[in-house]
Simulated assay, not measured.
Amino acid sequence: MPELPEVETFKRYLDRTSLKQVIKDVQVIDNRILDTEEKKLGKFLKAKRFESSTRHGKYLLVYLNPQYLVMHFGMSGDLEYYDDKEEPPKFSKVIFQFTNGFNLAYISIRMFGKVSVANSLEEFIENKKLGPDAYKMTLEEFQKAVQRRSAIAKNALLNQSFIAGVGNIYSDEILFRTKIHPKTNINSLSEGKVKELYANIKDVW
């Protein structure tokens, strides 16, 4: 499953290829991928531009004044920017068609991803009950989160309401580097170990 580093790569790819592009149309190939109404999505996007993007945990949020397009990539999601003259990528589920003759395809092989709309970043984070972003959080935020959490370390890192963005692969690497057994209760860690864990969360990316 795409975790924080992969979604950050998608963000940078979208920024490089698609920011400021005017959307001519939206083609929804499989509406099961939508977490919003298809007509609402089309009305929201047409004639607007991808103004900017941000990432929170495993979610990519693209700002189109005044709302956000939200993309979650599930187990096998991807983005591909391509010319009108080319065939759409295999497993494309939503295609954003730009006035410059290029397109951005949202790809999902196993249909675990979602495309939706959010009124604001703050509202989206609150509704999804997401914790602070694993890469952006401060040491103080992390220390407070650890103090409030009674769970084994592995489960705590995987819980997106604790910190957002860490998945199975990176949680194992983080705990290995910090020399913490996955079943250790996270709020039993010493202050020094918490700081070391925080540093390794940042460094593993």
Rank of each mutant, 00 (worst) to 15 (best):
P2Q: 11
E3R: 06
L4S: 12
P5M: 06
T9E: 12
T9K: 11
K11R: 15
K11T: 05
K11H: 14
D15A: 12
D15C: 13
R16E: 13
K20E: 15
K20W: 15
V22N: 11
K24D: 06
D25T: 08
Q27N: 13
D30V: 11
I33H: 00
I33W: 02
L34P: 00
L34R: 00
D35S: 15
T36W: 06
K43N: 14
L45P: 04
K46W: 01
R49K: 15
T54H: 07
G57Q: 03
G57A: 02
N65Q: 14
Y68C: 01
Y68L: 03
M71K: 07
H72L: 12
G74M: 09
M75F: 05
S76R: 00
D78V: 02
Y81M: 05
D83L: 14
K85V: 09
E87P: 14
P88L: 01
F96C: 01
F96P: 02
G113Q: 12
L121C: 07
F124G: 10
F124S: 08
N127C: 02
Y135F: 08
T138W: 05
E140R: 12
E141S: 13
F142Q: 03
K144F: 00
V146L: 06
R148N: 14
R149C: 11
N159E: 08
S161C: 08
G165I: 05
N168F: 05
I169T: 11
I174W: 02
T178N: 13
T178G: 07
K179W: 07
P182F: 06
P182V: 00
K183W: 01
L189V: 08
L189Q: 08
S190T: 15
K193I: 13
Y198W: 05
A199G: 04
I201K: 03
